[in-house]
């Protein structure tokens, strides 16, 4: 295992570090954006992460849950999260105002293999809240634009009002150094100017893909994976260059509590980023 290379925490890894909510605002009806800063500067500096990694966030009294980082490591100091209100921890987070204190520990998980992805083309396929981890890797690629080849983004949401960071992605469309296609399943506004249809309907719009040189990334609701993976395979992208990040129940984030176990791996240690080969190789991943 890669345990030896992983950054070991000093002391008790289960104690969260105090952090403050710097900014929070709604992104959609049930998704909020959170910008967080550690109280202790040393902790902020020690928190070195890769896109695709996650952190455990505590609201003391409500509990603790895993959330993937949405900010890129190329913009250190502040951690950003996109969080959907779903359970007691997220419910409590939604009630908190700016300046409120929370607990954060991490970063955990394998993250995207940024070193291997350098120099390659990157194809990012996003469904709904799947934008949370993929925003991190996309912003990282853009911040280090010269290190990557062609960057393409396909982003689907249920309807315009549920397209998280809609403005950010409209702005991306204006950039000359990447390809970006947006779609909504249904337009309930009448003023949507982009595509209507599920995210897979965007694949024909992609300019030519060089499969051997492409890393294809996907994250979205569970139902989406099967269809998007089929498109990636159609494009002949090698199975070990197809990457996805998965969600599981987690109580520790460090391979102890067992909840995220799949076969012989723990999603928190060996994931949450998996390749399409992992999916074929191990049952129950998706």
């Amino acid at each position: 295992m890669n345990g030896e290379t992983r950054c070991r925490e000093e002391g008790n890894p289960f104690l969260p570090h105090p952090a403050r909510i710097v900014r929070t605002y709604p992104l959609t009806q049930d998704v909020k954006f959170f910008q967080i800063r550690f109280l202790n500067m040393d902790q902020a500096l020690a928190f070195k992460y890769k896109p695709g990694q996650f952190a455990m966030i505590s609201v003391l009294g409500a509990g603790e849950a895993p959330f993937c980082l949405s900010s890129p490591p190329s913009r250190p100091g502040l951690l950003e999260f996109c969080i959907r209100k779903a359970g007691s921890v997220t419910g409590a987070l939604f009630d908190l105002k700016e300046n409120a204190m929370i607990g954060v520990r991490g970063p955990y998980g394998n993250g995207f293999p940024i070193e291997q992805m350098a120099g390659r083309d990157i194809l990012i396929t996003i469904g709904g809240l799947g934008v949370a981890p993929l925003r991190s890797v996309l912003l990282y690629c853009l911040d280090n634009r010269d290190q990557f080849g062609k960057v393409s983004v396909l982003y689907g949401a249920k309807k315009p009002s549920e397209m998280i960071f809609r403005e950010e992605y409209f702005a991306l469309k204006e950039r000359g150094d990447l390809e970006c296609h947006l779609a909504v399943d249904a337009d309930d506004t009448g003023s949507w100017t982009e595509n209507v249809g599920v995210v897979t309907t965007l694949f024909p719009k992609l300019s030519k893909v060089n499969p051997e040189n492409t890393y294809a990334l996907v994250c979205g609701p569970p139902v989406m994976y099967k269809f998007v993976l089929r498109e990636f395979v159609k494009l002949s992208i090698p199975k070990n260059q197809i990457l996805m990040t998965l969600e599981r129940r987690m109580k520790c984030g460090v391979g102890k509590c067992g909840h995220c176990a799949i076969d012989y791996i723990y999603t928190c240690l060996d994931g949450p980023v998996f390749t399409y080969w992992d999916v074929l190789h191990m049952r129950e991943l998706i």
């Binding site: 009294g61 409500a62 509990g63 007691s88 419910g91 409590a92 009630d95």
Partner: peptide
């Protein structure tokens, strides 16, 4: 009760 008072659903 304490969870309800803090605004959290009971577990």
């Amino acid at each position: 009760l304490t969870r309800l008072l803090a605004g959290h659903p009971p577990e």
